[in-house]
Simulated scan of single mutants.
Amino acid sequence: MTEQPSTLYAKLLGETAPITWQELQPFFARGALLWVDSALDLVEVALAVAEDDQAKVAGWLQAGQVAKVEETRAEDLLARDPKLWAVVVAPWVLIQERAEAPTVH
């Protein structure tokens, strides 16, 4: 990548959007979905993938914080239909479940 990391981070942040599991199913069928643990910054992970930062990505994969979406997770997402966020870093679509915002009374 030729872009400065902060510029690329901002670009990826701007391309991050809410999405439903139904919209993601074709990507799942192609094996192109990566699950990002909610403890991680989705855009930071996307940046590491875009920049081919193998050390960071390998660490997350080994820790189970980033993983290809498997059948059991797909079934869970289909059943629960949670709020998901996604960003595309070709050929991958990185997805993350977002916690509900706290309700203010």
Rank of each mutant, 00 (worst) to 15 (best):
A39M: 06
A50C: 09
A58H: 09
L42N: 07
E44T: 08
L33R: 07
T20N: 07
L61G: 04
G59T: 08
E44H: 12
L42G: 08
G14M: 10
L40F: 04
A46W: 10
G64N: 03
L34W: 06
G31I: 08
A17E: 13
V45G: 06
A32M: 12
A46G: 15
Q54A: 14
A48S: 13
L34S: 06
T16G: 09
W21M: 04
A58G: 13
W21V: 07
K56W: 10
F28S: 01
L47T: 10
T16Q: 11
W60F: 14
A17P: 04
L42E: 10
Q25F: 04
A46M: 09
V43K: 04
A50W: 08
L34Q: 11
V45R: 06
Q25H: 02
D53L: 00
F28V: 00
D41E: 09
A29I: 07
D52A: 15
D37Y: 01
E23R: 13
G59W: 15
G14A: 13
D53E: 12
D53P: 00
L24D: 01
V36I: 01
F27T: 06
Q54R: 13
L42D: 06
R30C: 00
L61Y: 09
A63C: 13
L33K: 09
D53R: 15
A29D: 12
K56G: 04
L13V: 00
A58E: 15
G14Q: 08
G64F: 14
K56V: 02
Q62S: 12
P26R: 05
P26N: 03
L13D: 11
E15F: 08
A50K: 14
L47G: 06
G64W: 15
E15Y: 09
G59P: 12
I19F: 04
V49T: 01
A46C: 03
R30V: 01
P18L: 09
W35N: 03
L34H: 04
D53V: 04
A46E: 08
D52G: 02
L13W: 09
L61A: 01
A46T: 05
Q62T: 14
L13T: 04
L47W: 13
P18D: 15
A55C: 04
E44Q: 14
W60P: 00
L40A: 02
A63Y: 11
L33S: 08
G59N: 14
G64R: 01
D41T: 00
V36C: 11
V43C: 07
G31D: 07
L40K: 05
L13S: 12
W35Q: 10
A55I: 11
W60N: 03
T20W: 05
D52P: 02
I19P: 02
E23W: 04
A39W: 00
T20Y: 06
W60L: 06
W35Y: 10
V36Y: 01
L40G: 02
V49L: 13
F28A: 09
W60G: 05
E23Y: 07
W35E: 07
D41V: 01
T20E: 12
L13Q: 14
A32D: 12
T20C: 05
F28R: 00
D52V: 12
A46Q: 04
L61D: 11
E23N: 13
W21E: 10
L61P: 07
I19T: 14
G14S: 11
A29Q: 09
G14Y: 11
P26H: 06
P26C: 05
D41F: 02
